[in-house]
Design a protein around this nucleic acid. Structure first.
Length: 449
RNA sequence: GCCCCGGUGGUGUAGCGGCCUAUCAUCCGGGCCUGUCGAGCCCGGGACCCGAGUUCAAAUCUCGGCCGGGGCGCCA
C-alpha cells in the first residue's frame, strides 16, 4: 500500500471555490465509482463534503499506472493530487484533472451494502454495516444535524443560566418506578442502569445551583419493539428552582425555536439532502388541556379496552391516550403543541398535583403531531406530600432516603422536563425510525455493533 | 407482555406444489470505447435459513428450531 507521505488534504470537495480554479490541490477520500472509457477514466471521489469527479487519462499518468488505478475496488481510500478545472458539464461545476494518486488502502469486494444508493438495504443490514451505511450523505446528514442540535442546546441552556451537570448512570435502586431497569453487577452488589436523571437533578434543586441541565444516556429495559423506542437513548433534562411548569414550558419553547433556527442556518444542505423543509416554529406553541383532548376523542368515538373488564368502551378522563388517539389529535395539531393538566394518576409520583384538585396535575407533554417529544411539570417540593405520593404509587419511601432527605432541609418549589434527543431528531430530519437517529442503536434485539 | 408477518445470489427482490438446470435490478469478473456522470454495449459469475414430515414431485404445503420485520401496550 502507498503511504500518505507528506500529502495532506487541502480542502473538502464542498470547500472548493472559483479561487481554486487552475490550482493544484490534494483531495482525500473514498472511490465511490470509476467509469472507464478506454484511455480516459472518471473516478468519483467522495469525502465528507460530497463527491467530485477526478479525470484520469492514460496519456497523463502512464499505461501501467492507469491500468492499475482504473481497477481500484469501490470504496478504496485514495489521495488525489490534481488541478481544479472548471467544467460546466459536471455537477459541481468543476472537476479534478488528476496528476497523481496515492492508494492508501484497498476495499474488499463486493461490498456488503451499496454505498452509492443503487440498492436500498434493510435497516437491519444497514446497522450490521453501520460504518458503510454512514458513508451515505443522507445518513451523515442526520448526524451532522444531531451534532448541531446537541451543541446548540448546550449553548442555549448555558445562556439561559443553566449549569451543566452529570449524574450517575449506575444506581442502586429504581429511580421513578414504572419502567424496567437493566440489572448489573457492581462488585458484589446488584446495581442498575439509570432510567432517568430525575431524582438526582431534583436533588440539585436543594443545593442552590438553581438551574441545572444534563445531556446524557438513559436506559430502559422495556421490551418494546417500535419505531420510536430505544433501550438506550439520549435525554436532555433540565430542572429549575423557584419555578412552575409554565416557566419550564417557556424554556422548552425558546430552546426548540432557537434549535430550529440554528439547524436551518447551519445544516441547510443536510436538510436538502434529507429532503425536508422546515420553518422556524412561532412561539407560543398551542397549549391544550388533556380534558379537551379527551372530549374531542369521545366525540370521535374512540374506544379503549377497559383495564378491569377487558371490554371495549369509550375513552374517558383518566385514560392514557393511545397512539390511535394521538393520531386523531395530530390531524388537528400537526406541529408543536403542549398538552397540559394531565391526570395525576397518569404521571410519576413527583409531579405536583393541583392545589384543591389533586386529580389534576401540573404536568405537561410537548408533542409534535402524534409524537411525544418531552414531558415535564412542576414537581412536588413538600416532603410530606412527596412521601404520600410515593406510597400512593406503591413505592417504599425508605428506598428513596437519599432523595427525600433533599426535601427536608429547604427545598424550593421547582419544575423541569426531559426531552428525548432522538425523538426530536426524528422531527427535524424526517426519519421514520428512531434508530436512524442513533449511530449504534440498542433495542431488544440489537446489542452488536 | 400480546397480536400479525417474513427469511431466495454480496445487496434489494419475483416466484408460493410440476412450466425453476429460479425472475429482475444492482453487484462481481472479462472485453470495447478520450467526456462519462443512474454511462453504454457484448460475454461470463453468483442464491431458495436449518431440521423433520406430507407428496410421484417442495423455494412453494405442515411442524419444530434459529434469525428478522411490523403493530399494540409502555414511554422520551
Amino acid at each position: 500500500m502507498e503511504s500518505l507521505g507528506d500529502w495532506r488534504r487541502d480542502k473538502y470537495v464542498n470547500e472548493v471555490t472559483e479561487d481554486d480554479y487552475d490550482k493544484e490541490l490534494v483531495f482525500m477520500g473514498w472511490v465511490q465509482d470509476i467509469m472507464v472509457l478506454g484511455k480516459i477514466s472518471f473516478i468519483i471521489l467522495r469525502d465528507r463534503g460530497g463527491t467530485v469527479q477526478v479525470v484520469m487519462s492514460r496519456n497523463e499518468i502512464g499505461a501501467n499506472r492507469y491500468n492499475f488505478l482504473k481497477k481500484l475496488p469501490r470504496e478504496s481510500v485514495i489521495a488525489v493530487k490534481g488541478v481544479v478545472v472548471p467544467n460546466p458539464q459536471v455537477q459541481q461545476g468543476f472537476e479534478i484533472q488528476c496528476k497523481e494518486i496515492r492508494v492508501l488502502n484497498l476495499a474488499k469486494s463486493p461490498l456488503p451494502i451499496s454505498v452509492d444508493g443503487q440498492v436500498r438495504a434493510n435497516m437491519d443490514t444497514r446497522l450490521d454495516w453501520r460504518f458503510l451505511d454512514l458513508r451515505k450523505p443522507e445518513v451523515q446528514a442526520i448526524f451532522k444535524i444531531r451534532s448541531t442540535v446537541l451543541s446548540a442546546m448546550r449553548d442555549i441552556l448555558l445562556e439561559e443560566g443553566f449549569i451543566e451537570i452529570h449524574t450517575p448512570k449506575i444506581v442502586a435502586t429504581a429511580t421513578e418506578g414504572g419502567t424496567a431497569l437493566f440489572k448489573m453487577k457492581y462488585f458484589d452488589r446488584v446495581a442498575y442502569l439509570n432510567q432517568s436523571p430525575q431524582l438526582f437533578k431534583q436533588s440539585m434543586m436543594a443545593t442552590g445551583l438553581d438551574r441545572v441541565f444534563e445531556i446524557g444516556p438513559a436506559f430502559r429495559a422495556e421490551e418494546h419493539d417500535t419505531l420510536r423506542h430505544l433501550n438506550e437513548y439520549t435525554s436532555i433534562d433540565i430542572e429549575m428552582a423557584f419555578s412552575d411548569e409554565n416557566d419550564a414550558m417557556e424554556v422548552l419553547e425558546r430552546l426548540v425555536v432557537r434549535v430550529y433556527g440554528k439547524v436551518l442556518a447551519e445544516n441547510y444542505s443536510d436538510l436538502q439532502t434529507l429532503n425536508v423543509e422546515h420553518t422556524v416554529p412561532e412561539p407560543p406553541f398551542k397549549r391544550v388541556k388533556y380534558s379537551e383532548l379527551i372530549e374531542r376523542l369521545q366525540n370521535e368515538g374512540l374506544e379503549v379496552e377497559d383495564e378491569r373488564s377487558g371490554q371495549k368502551r369509550l375513552i374517558e378522563w383518566g385514560d392514557d391516550i393511545p397512539l390511535e388517539g394521538m393520531k386523531l389529535i395530530a390531524e388537528r395539531y400537526k406541529s408543536l403543541y403542549f398538552i397540559t393538566h394531565w391526570p395525576t394518576s397518569l404521571k410519576p409520583f413527583y409531579i405536583m398535583p393541583l392545589e384543591g384538585d389533586e386529580e389534576v396535575s401540573h404536568a405537561f407533554d410537548l408533542n409534535y403531531a402524534e409524537k411525544e417529544l418531552a414531558s415535564g411539570g412542576q414537581r412536588i417540593h413538600l416532603p410530606d406530600l412527596l412521601r404520600r405520593r410515593l406510597e400512593e404509587n406503591g413505592l417504599t419511601p425508605e428506598n428513596f432516603t437519599f432523595y427525600l432527605n433533599a426535601f427536608e432541609y429547604g427545598m424550593p418549589p421547582h419544575a423541569g422536563w426531559g426531552l428525548g434527543a432522538e425523538r426530536f431528531l426524528m422531527v427535524l430530519t424526517g426519519v421514520k425510525n428512531v434508530r436512524e437517529a442513533v449511530l449504534f442503536p440498542r433495542d431488544k434485539k440489537r446489542l452488536v455493533p
